[in-house]
């Protein structure tokens, strides 16, 4: 079979600790907030690059967002990917999971002959974890989720995934093409290769595609394509540690802790 073509979906997210909500407008304050590539997506990219090291082929990065995201994606390109595509259009704004998965699927269709689509387990901002299987549905292909490892049987054209389950595992086989989601922190993303970096950071290295380029149905993108609306947004109560000293006899302290467990733990 021809060279493997792998696509890694990558999201640029503001760093969680830095995010604030404007109480008046109920919008996220993004100014001055440092961003990064969604850490689980880095694990997905590492898995793809590792497959490329073993089997050859090429790795394309696919992302959605405004043009300033380019420099973040270029860092991922400098890890050893071959191409980067940024889906960027005002019409994509306000997308929820349904519209996002549609838009990414259109991007993948435009790339053509894709064998494996890699996604991180979830995004640090929305944390829905629903993009991989939604994407697989739009593309009408199989899926392997929560993998910690992947092996290829290129002769048979199947991917064999090692999947983590609660206190156990599963080994699943799915014919290509397939959408894969990768367990967070299952590998260590390589650092940028500085022999590649100057190339990766050249101007124009990122291919930007608009809604028109994707031949996207305007009913399915952005606000229009999003069934859900956010009716209120607020900062969660302070995330600083309480540093509350519990006092009493060991038995009394044990009772106080039982209350803590009741509040904070799954039953």
């Amino acid at each position: 079979m021809p060279d493997l073509h792998m696509v890694v979906c990558v999201k640029v997210v503001p760093k969680s600790e830095e995010i604030r909500v404007d109480p008046e407008t109920m919008h996220l304050i993004r100014e001055g907030v440092r961003s990064e590539i969604n850490p689980p997506d880095m694990n997905a990219l590492e898995m793809a690059l590792d497959l490329k090291d073993r089997h050859g082929g090429r790795v394309s990065l696919l992302s959605m967002g405004p043009p300033p995201f380019e420099t973040y994606l270029q860092a991922a390109l400098a890890m050893g990917a071959d191409h980067v595509y940024l889906l960027s259009d005002r019409a994509f704004a306000g997308a929820d999971t349904l519209a996002t998965t549609y838009t990414l699927a259109q991007g993948i269709r435009k790339l053509g002959d894709v064998d494996i689509v890699f996604c991180g387990e979830e995004s640090a901002d929305g944390a829905t974890g629903q993009v991989p299987s939604g994407l697989a549905e739009w593309l009408n292909v199989g899926q392997l989720t929560l993998l910690t490892n992947i092996e290829m049987d290129l002769k048979r054209g199947v991917a064999r995934g090692h999947r983590e389950l609660k206190g156990g595992y599963e080994i699943l086989e799915v014919p290509l093409p397939v959408v894969v989601s990768v367990t967070t922190a299952c590998n260590e993303p390589r650092f940028m290769d500085y022999r590649i970096k100057p190339w990766a950071f050249e101007a124009g290295r990122v291919t930007v595609w608009t809604a028109g380029d994707l031949d996207a149905d305007e009913n399915h993108i952005g606000f229009n394509g999003s069934p859900t609306v956010v009716s209120s947004l607020a900062e969660a109560p302070s995330r600083e540690r309480k540093k509350q000293f519990l006092e009493g006899s060991p038995a009394e302290i044990a009772q106080l802790l039982l209350n803590v467990f009741r509040e904070d733990l799954p039953q």
């Binding site: 760093k15 830095e18 440092r34 990064e36 650092f191």
Partner: peptide, 18 residues
């Protein structure tokens, strides 16, 4: 590699918020 990425994204090698 994680240490270098921490410096790249956070500005420090200890994975702490800038």
């Amino acid at each position: 590699p994680s240490m270098l990425w921490s410096l790249y994204w956070n500005g420090n090698p200890w994975s702490q918020p800038p």
